[in-house]
Nucleic acid binder design. Structure first.
Lengths: 343, 343
DNA sequence: CGCGCGACTGAAATCGTTTCTAGGTTCCGC
DNA sequence: GCGGAACCTAGAAACGATTTCAGTCGCGCG
């Protein structure tokens, strides 16, 4: 547990000056092969590891990227984060993760912290798209920054998924099957994905000549814990839906168990579409028709945008949108497939 | 996008020296209230954010913790990481995440990188418990380090789950129901959890007076992709198992679909127990009996151990073990419940 | 043979903060 | 009124690297 070796120690051992050590280790230029070899060997023998605090102080880059999401334990973010981290790791960047848990104060504090630490770049999925403090913080961030799937009125690189198009396809699918009473289980419209999905749904209804009022709302399900009871209540109501679209990615579980606990069957009594192709959607019985998009790619792309900026790219902000795909499984059928009393 | 304010600027604006600014901002001691107020206001007005590279260089702590796991997109790690990050964030620490993707070279590189960056502490889940390079790296790490659920021959703090006890309970449950031919779907025994689970299974068999040879192995399922075909093959074999224990946390999906694709039913034809209480286990139909342990708590505890060390705790290494609990659902019944030809 | 140029190398400045040291006030008690 | 304690404050050193700048050395060319 002795003091770690410093550049000075390496220099002494190699019999050269610290500046030569630095050159030998970094550039390799302006150094004679003989010295370079000696330095390399000395560094190896001493297990020299440059102090990146000092490097970051003297130079400007910290080779660190900050990432802010609401919670990595959300599988969507987990996959995205994993892919982004992998790509950045390849380039030698360190990946700092911050979970806001939906708390705006934490988001603000984290972004500030990221800046204090002189991160080279940021990847952020805000939970609040409008608060002026947050907007100002984003605007004042001098380093490259990628916005994940959010509508923030700031000119920045962004990566998103086509929630609107996906939702449109999902709604269309149900409408074509004959559904008119569709329950939307949604986490709310606070952030872009929720709004876009909603908009897609509504425009599908309008395009089909239907009034969007046919869509029932279940907004209060802002907490996942309420999904079960809300859905159950809707199914037991006077005009139960013939189909349910689960717009929140972690709400499928509650929905399915609510359906089961009402003694109803999928798809006979209720059709179900899930936004987000989770294990549960894939392997539930019956398999749940779901909207999928390539989260790994989203994460990788966010990293790629940052790397391009690091490389000196000064083009105006880009917006990359990834398509969504409707995976047809067995959870949808025309309404009323289970005739009354068939059970 | 002007140069961020420095301590010097704050000092000038407040009409004091940089050292007074530092004292006013940090300690608050040895500073007159008047100066303190002026400094605070000046810092606020300039939006001063100390450069933590410089702070870290001058002082010793970087207030940063590194965490190494194989992949956060594994929901188990995601939950653990999320909890650990939350706890550390509360204390103002930055959380650096590195995914090794099971690659030893990456693990080594990441630990080295963490050290170069002068992390104050490390949380690591190695994928290779024995490679000397890795062991040496761990040993040479001077800062506090917590090992996650691994058997590494190094004296360090560790946090684990009682896989052996959990597996024992699971095996016992099946044996009590009358099962004798049990298929184990396992990701292998490279790391502690796999070995411990296996050991628990075997000792349950021995305690019941049965030969552990009754346990069938499915080791080649090291890649999740092979689970489906391996299980299918076992079920179609000459002596199909009456029960399956899924020892890998991401292998339940493949197992269930293999069972379904053989035209078999759970639990009538095959009983199933899953290690790891995922959404899929909870909400599959029928619900899958599963082993659960408190991952949030594991993550929090790892953070807590580090924080204690930061606080000056010099006690010998601790080992915290979390219990596992068998959640009985509907996926297990005595063998042969579905009489031949009943379908 | 001398001059100049190019290639290396080392000394010193620098990055932005904290902390140590020492100096200066103020205030109190004798 | 003076000595000393207590309290602030400024200045300088230190942290560990990179980078600039200037100097040295060797060699080729005139």
């Amino acid at each position: 547990m002795t003091r770690p070796a410093q550049i000075h120690d390496v220099a002494a051992r190699a019999g050269v000056s610290p500046s030569s050590v630095s050159r030998a280790l970094n550039g390799g230029r302006h150094v004679s092969p003989a010295v370079q070899a000696r330095v390399l060997r000395a560094a190896e023998e001493l297990g020299y590891e440059p102090n990146l605090n000092a490097q970051g102080l003297r130079g400007q880059a910290s080779r660190t990227v900050g990432c802010l999401v609401s919670d990595v334990s959300n599988p969507l973010y987990a996959e995205l984060v994993s892919a982004a981290e992998a790509r950045l790791q390849d380039e030698g960047y360190l990946f700092v993760l911050g979970n806001s848990h939906g708390d705006m104060a934490r988001e603000l504090a984290l972004i500030r912290l990221f800046r204090r630490r002189r991160m080279d770049g940021l990847i952020v999925a805000l939970n609040n798209e409008t608060h002026p403090d947050l907007l100002r913080e984003i605007e004042q961030t001098a380093v490259p920054l990628v916005l994940l799937d959010r509508d923030v009125s700031v000119e920045r690189d962004r990566v998103s998924a086509d929630h609107r198009g996906g939702a449109y396809a999902a709604a269309r699918h149900l409408i074509d099957l004959g559904h008119r009473d569709i329950l939307l289980v949604t986490p709310g419209h606070q952030v872009r994905p929720g709004r876009e999905r909603m908009a897609g749904m509504e425009s599908a209804f309008r395009d089909a000549g239907l009034a969007p009022e046919g869509l029932t709302f279940s907004l209060q399900a802002s907490s996942i814990a309420f999904v079960f009871s809300d859905v159950k209540q809707a199914l037991a109501g006077p005009r139960p839906p013939s189909a349910i679209v689960v717009l929140g990615t972690q709400m499928l579980a509650g929905t399915l168990s609510a359906i089961a606990s009402c003694g109803l069957e999928v798809p006979g009594d209720v059709s179900v579409i899930s936004i987000g192709d989770t294990d549960l959607a894939r392997y539930a019985a019956p398999g749940i028709t779901a909207l999928r998009w390539d989260l790994k790619n989203v994460g990788r792309q966010a990293a790629e945008l940052l790397l391009a900026r690091f490389g000196g790219d000064v083009a105006p902000p880009r917006a990359v949108v990834f398509p969504m795909e409707l995976i047809i499984r067995k959870s949808c059928s025309p309404p009323g497939s289970n005739r009354r009393g068939a059970r």
